[in-house]
């Protein structure tokens, strides 16, 4: 693939999908600044593998999988923890700038372990099936089911945003 064509295709793809990727990244990490860092790293990886990614049947799926893996890898290395002020989780700091309703959901999401959080975002925001989520997370369908169940249980306990959820468990 000629370099110019490759760059033009890549730039066009990023321009059309950057908003969507940013929102998914934001739901994963709960902070717009970190979300931007995540997307920048994700699309850099995408560029490095663009020859393969652009030929994939589902380029969006490839990009989403790269984003989720980047998020989970970041959690494992925890580099971002060293950049925030001691005692203030970025989720909480960012949450406080918004409405109470959003605060509840963001706090509830922040309470989830990273893998459960990724499962919730993939299943209920990206609307992936269990099998599709398993592929994105590189795990078994059974693992997605168990992660989802645990995540929803935690959300039910903490979330006041969706009364129906809370009422059914009370």
């Amino acid at each position: 693939m000629a370099k110019q064509t490759r760059d033009a295709e890549f730039t066009e793809y990023v321009a059309s999908r950057s908003g969507w990727l940013r929102k998914v990244a934001y739901l994963l990490c709960g902070d717009w600044h970190r979300a931007d860092d995540l997307v920048q790293e994700t699309i850099t990886k995408l560029y490095v593998h663009w020859a393969k990614a652009s030929r994939a049947k589902n380029v969006d799926g490839y990009a989403r999988r790269t984003l989720v893996n980047t998020f989970l890898a970041e959690q494992r290395t925890s580099w971002w923890r060293r950049t925030v002020r001691t005692g203030t989780e970025p989720d909480i700091a960012a949450a406080s700038i918004d409405l109470d309703v959003s605060l509840d959901l963001r706090k509830a999401l922040a309470a989830l372990p990273p893998r459960q959080r990724a499962t919730v975002v993939l299943r209920y925001y990206c609307d992936l099936s269990i099998d599709q989520a398993a592929e994105a997370l590189n795990c078994s369908s059974g693992n997605v089911k168990s992660q989802s169940a645990r995540a929803l249980e935690t959300l039910r306990r903490t979330l006041v945003l969706v009364p129906a959820l809370a009422e059914r468990t009370s």
Partner: peptide
């Protein structure tokens, strides 16, 4: 807030 990432940076880094 305004996005702080762009394709050009990723191309350069990539």
């Amino acid at each position: 807030p305004p996005a702080a990432f762009d394709a050009t940076t990723s191309i350069a880094r990539g």
